[in-house]
Simulated scan of single mutants.
Amino acid sequence: MAIVATLVVTGCIAQKRSVGVQAADVAKVELYFYTYGTDPRTVERTTITSPGLIEELTSAFTDVPVSAPNDTEQTKGARAAGVRYTTKDGRRIELTQIFVEPSVVFILWQDGSANRTELGVPLVDYYREGDPTEVVSADEAPIARLP
C-alpha cells in the first residue's frame, strides 16, 4: 500500500523551471508585446527599471511548475510577450510567454525548450501602463517559436 501511495504522490509532482537570474543582478527588463503565430513587423516595447517591478518579473518566472507543451495549436493568435532581462554586467536572458487563457500558458525558454504551465497572466495587461512604451521593429524582440 505504501508503494502505491508513493507512486501516486510522485507522479503528481510537477517539474519546475526558472529564468536563472536574480532580481538584484538585473538592470532592466524589456517586454515586447505581439500576437503569437503572426510575423509582426513591429512590436510594442515597454522598459522596466523599477526594482520592485524587476523583482516581480523575476519572481514570476522562478520555480514555475511546468509540464510538456501539449496542444500547441491553440497558441496561434494568443497574446505573447518576449521578455529580455539585461543584467548589470550586460548579459541578456530571454524568454517568451504565450498567454492563451487562464491556466493555459506556454513559456519558451532561452535554451530553445518549451513548457506549459497553469500559472501566469497576460503581461501586456499589467506592465504597459505607466512605463515607457514605444513601437519598435520586430527584429529587436526575442520572438521565439515553439519547437
Rank of each mutant, 00 (worst) to 15 (best):
L7D: 02
L7H: 09
V8T: 11
T10S: 15
G11N: 13
C12Y: 12
I13Q: 15
I13H: 14
I13D: 14
I13G: 11
I13F: 13
Q15E: 15
Q15M: 14
K16I: 13
K16G: 05
K16F: 07
R17K: 15
R17D: 04
R17C: 05
R17T: 03
R17F: 01
S18Y: 10
V19D: 02
G20M: 05
V21S: 08
Q22L: 09
A23R: 00
A23E: 03
A23L: 04
A24S: 15
D25T: 09
V26Y: 02
V26F: 01
V26C: 04
V26N: 02
A27T: 06
V29H: 04
E30Q: 15
E30R: 14
L31K: 01
L31P: 02
L31I: 08
Y32V: 00
Y32A: 08
Y32M: 00
Y32I: 00
Y32T: 05
F33D: 09
F33W: 05
F33T: 05
F33S: 05
Y34D: 13
Y34L: 13
Y34C: 08
Y34Q: 12
T35M: 03
T35K: 00
Y36I: 04
Y36T: 00
Y36P: 04
T38N: 04
D39H: 15
P40E: 12
P40T: 12
R41L: 10
R41N: 13
T42I: 11
T42Y: 05
T42K: 11
V43N: 04
E44N: 13
T46D: 00
T47Q: 02
I48T: 01
I48K: 00
S50C: 09
S50T: 11
P51Q: 10
G52Y: 01
G52H: 08
L53V: 11
I54Y: 03
E56N: 07
E56Y: 05
L57C: 00
A60K: 05
F61M: 06
F61C: 04
F61L: 03
F61T: 00
T62V: 12
D63N: 15
V64F: 06
V64C: 11
V64W: 08
V64Q: 03
S67I: 10
A68Y: 07
A68K: 14
P69C: 03
N70G: 14
N70I: 15
D71W: 03
D71T: 10
D71G: 12
Q74F: 07
T75G: 05
T75K: 01
T75A: 15
R79N: 08
R79M: 12
R79W: 06
R79I: 01
A80Y: 08
G82H: 02
Y85Q: 09
Y85E: 04
T87K: 10
K88M: 00
K88T: 02
D89R: 12
G90K: 06
G90L: 02
R91L: 11
R92D: 14
R92I: 06
R92W: 08
R92T: 14
